[in-house]
Computed example of a mutant assay.
Amino acid sequence: MKKKRPRISVFRSNKQIYVQIIDDVNHQTLLSYSSKKKSNLKITKTKMARKIGMILGEKAKKRGIYKLVFDRNGYLYHGRVKALAEGLRKTGLKF
Rank of each mutant, 00 (worst) to 15 (best):
L76H: 10
V81A: 13
E58Q: 15
V81D: 06
K37A: 13
H78A: 05
M48I: 05
V10P: 03
G53M: 05
A49R: 03
I21N: 04
N26D: 14
M48E: 12
K47I: 06
A49N: 07
L88M: 14
H78K: 10
N40K: 15
M1P: 12
I8T: 08
I43C: 01
T29D: 08
K2P: 14
I21D: 05
M48F: 00
V10A: 06
K62E: 15
L56N: 03
I43P: 03
N40T: 11
K67E: 15
M1K: 12
K37E: 15
R12E: 07
K94F: 07
K82W: 03
D71K: 04
Y33C: 10
I17A: 06
H78T: 09
T44Y: 00
T44K: 08
K59P: 01
G57T: 09
F70A: 08
D23V: 07
Y66D: 03
K45V: 05
K45S: 15
F95N: 11
R12D: 01
I65H: 05
V10D: 04
R80F: 01
M54G: 05
K45P: 00
Y77H: 08
A83W: 04
G57K: 11
L68F: 09
L31H: 10
F95M: 09
K67Y: 11
Y66L: 07
T29Q: 15
A83L: 05
V19H: 08
